[in-house]
């Protein structure tokens, strides 16, 4: 019983149409992104369903999930904070910024806060070197930039976000900070 396929039938059709009919495997990454939107990570049964759609083995799907850093096979915090500590950011205090954040939240990089809301990850360059320190937030499959950060500013934002999650309000206006068009 392919429930993923049932729920997302039209979207799956649309994604498959981007590739030649005999190349269904090409849709594996778009389908994984689609799956991750729901729970923030990809379960084994869903990998199995995606394998069937793409006409490849479940092992091949699992290896894709394992290879790419933005696919997750384990639940993390509702909010993933991806802090860049790469070359250019490091020259602007990104490592000190990251350890200050980790101290405040009581987690090590890669860990999740005790309330299960926030996971902090140390990541490589995210193409925002001129606005270091910088992090990206990943909520479900939505990714946003947050530039020119300091621990206080980031913690304020986090408090706002986690408060709205705890009260179940859908007031997640993620677009504000990232919109610099």
């Amino acid at each position: 019983m392919n429930t993923f396929k049932k729920i997302h039938a039209s979207e799956i059709e649309r994604l498959l149409a981007n590739y030649p009919p005999d190349r269904k495997q090409a849709a594996v990454m778009p389908l994984l992104h689609l799956a991750q939107q729901e729970a923030g990570y990809i379960t084994e049964p869903v990998m199995q369903e995606i394998a069937e759609i793409c006409e490849i083995s479940a092992t091949e799907v699992a290896s894709i999930v394992g290879y790419y850093t933005m696919f997750h096979d384990q639940p993390g915090g509702k909010i993933r904070l991806m802090v860049c500590t790469d070359v250019a950011c490091r020259l602007h205090g990104a490592r000190e910024y990251l350890s200050a954040l980790c101290n405040e939240l009581g987690v090590a990089p890669g860990g999740t806060s005790s309330d299960g809301l926030v996971t902090i990850e140390e990541v490589k360059c995210i193409a925002a070197c001129d606005h270091a320190p910088v992090f990206q937030s990943q909520i479900g499959d939505e990714v946003e930039y947050h530039e020119n950060q300091n621990p206080g500013r980031t913690l304020d934002w986090l408090r706002l976000m986690t408060a709205s999650m705890k009260t179940g309000q859908a007031s997640m206006n993620l677009g504000q900070e990232a919109d610099h068009e």
């Binding site: 790469d86 193409a127 070197c129 610099h180 068009e181």
Partner: peptide, 15 residues
């Protein structure tokens, strides 16, 4: 665009 220190394509794609 992923080379550390590179952020030009992002500006083009956004703006």
């Amino acid at each position: 665009e992923s080379e550390p220190g590179t952020f030009k394509d992002r500006e083009i794609l956004e703006s």
